[in-house]
């Protein structure tokens, strides 16, 4: 092989941290510019929570349960739609190929998208907390509020992985359809909308099949309304889900370029 061509010094010393920031900033800007994404993502969980967690709920316990449930529901939407469907769209439009051809640091777009999803998760989490505190009469210890916020923001990761995999499988429109097919039933079957105990036994038994159930259980553990499973089990499942879908998606995306 020929000798490598010498580059100016600044090529090596160039610190590209700024492009991570810009990437995240513009990713967020892009999503904010899509009302069709922003409105449902923010309004669904808050409106549902207002209705079921505040107006139709008769106890603070229910408002707490639903605060945890709709929080996970909301951030799952942000991750699956913003991240998963977003990646499918970008891939369809050749953006991923371009990003890989450009000297963007590997994975910076992935981190940017995840950061944007985290911002949305944080906003959803705060909106719900404000509603719960002001209207729902939910009084939690500061540590519980913080823990719930952390669960919501960090909890997007497995769903980003799942979204990434969906985004690597199908194109933009199909991804939205697939996510819709998955999102609403999974939220329901994971007991994010209402306690599984009011449904037939089989729903409770099979709920652990859904990744959302495990994040939901962690959130509910924070407010003391979980079903009693070990937090390590939930974390383990979420970790496996994250790793498996990231690995699968990575392989598909590498092959598709």
């Amino acid at each position: 092989m020929d000798a490598a061509i010498e580059f100016p010094v600044e090529t090596h010393s160039f610190q590209s941290w700024r492009c991570y920031l810009l990437e995240a900033k513009y990713e967020l800007l892009r999503q904010v510019r899509q009302p069709a994404f922003v409105l449902p993502t923010l309004l669904f969980p808050t409106a549902f929570y207002l209705l079921f967690g505040v107006m139709l709920s008769r106890s603070a316990a229910a408002a707490e349960y639903m605060l945890a449930g709709y929080g996970v529901f909301g951030i799952m939407g942000a991750a699956l739609f913003g991240f998963g469907a977003g990646i499918a769209n970008d891939r369809e439009r050749g953006l991923l190929r371009l990003k890989r051809a450009l000297p963007a640091p590997a994975g910076s777009w992935l981190l940017a998208k995840m950061a944007a999803a985290m911002v949305f998760a944080a906003v959803i989490s705060l909106l719900l907390a404000v509603l719960a505190y002001t209207l729902g009469g939910v009084a939690l210890a500061p540590g519980q509020w913080l823990a719930l916020f952390a669960v919501n923001v960090i909890g997007i990761v497995p769903f980003c992985a799942l979204g990434l995999y969906i985004g690597s499988l199908v194109g933009g429109n199909a991804a939205v359809a697939v996510v819709n097919l998955l999102f609403l039933p999974m939220a329901f079957l994971s007991g994010l909308w209402m306690p599984l105990s009011i449904l037939p036994d089989i729903f409770s038994r099979l709920a652990p099949v859904w990744p959302a159930y495990h994040l939901g259980q962690i959130a509910m553990k924070v407010v003391g309304h979980d079903a009693g499973g070990s937090v390590w089990l939930h974390l383990a499942v979420l970790t496996v889900v994250t790793v498996v879908f990231f690995v699968l998606a990575r392989r598909r995306l590498a092959a598709a370029a």
Partner: peptide
């Protein structure tokens, strides 16, 4: 790089 199938963030 200027790729044939374009690719740019349309909403930026």
């Amino acid at each position: 790089v200027m790729l044939q199938d374009g690719g740019a963030h349309g909403d930026l």
